[in-house]
Amino acid sequence: MVLELRFADARLWRYVLRGLADYLDVVGIKLHPDEGLRLKAMDPSHVMMVDFIIPRTAFDEYHVEEETVITINLELASKALRRATKNDRLVLRSDGSRLTFGLVSKGGVERCFTMPLLATKYEEIPELSLELQVQAKTLGPSVASALSILSEAGEILKISVDQEGMSLIASSELGEIEMVFSPTTGTLIDYQPPSDPPQFANTYSLEYFEFIAKVARLSETVTFKLSPDMPCEIDAELSSGALLKVYVAPRVE
């Protein structure tokens, strides 16, 4: 197996791998010669699933000989990328036994970090079957900032939707914070309100949204997809056509 990839924004990888390292030790990355890269992972309690998709066209260079899976140690990988800045390009190289992360700065200097690939068996995570009626599209930095404020207020996130818009609410014994997003105030770019019932609220454990908060700041837009008592799907549109989908299972109060 030989592969070499070049991606314009190394910081994106830094945030995604660092975020995953809070939940997992290792992760498998699937590479297809034509379709591109896909990283699908689920936290050990099966409450959160991450689906990170980078189409082949999103890479500056993409050379993958055959469909392959590389398994990496997330702690090591995120350490290697911790100094990646917005000006760094990422180079991924592998000979089948080792993986090199290269950070190429604006001036063309490459810092390389090489680590062994793991021989862990790759377990395919099944697809979810979800039909979600509400779609609320907003700006990534707004979501990042909202989630950061909410995480200071409590541990439970209530997402309430009606015909006017969506509210993110965190509460604890100390009080409640509500962040309102609506098309009329311009905080929602696009909104498909609930049809049946016309309004509802789901609750989630806020800790699983920390991952989204980290990546959302690099996203152009973030879309929340919801249905009553169903998992929440959050799609973050990233640079160059990369897409991060995060699914979080709801709480039953």
Binding site: M42, S45, H46, V47, M48, M49, P126, E127, L128, S129, L130, E155, I156, S172, T203, S205, E207, M230, P231, Y247, A249, P250, R251, V252, E253
Partner: peptide, 22 residues
């Protein structure tokens, strides 16, 4: 108290129940 609020007062479901059946 945090654990109680998070896991015992309510219950977190798992994504397993929404996986497509093979």
């Amino acid at each position: 108290k945090k654990a109680y609020r998070e896991y015992f007062r309510g219950k977190i479901t798992s994504l397993d129940m929404w996986f497509k059946r093979k």
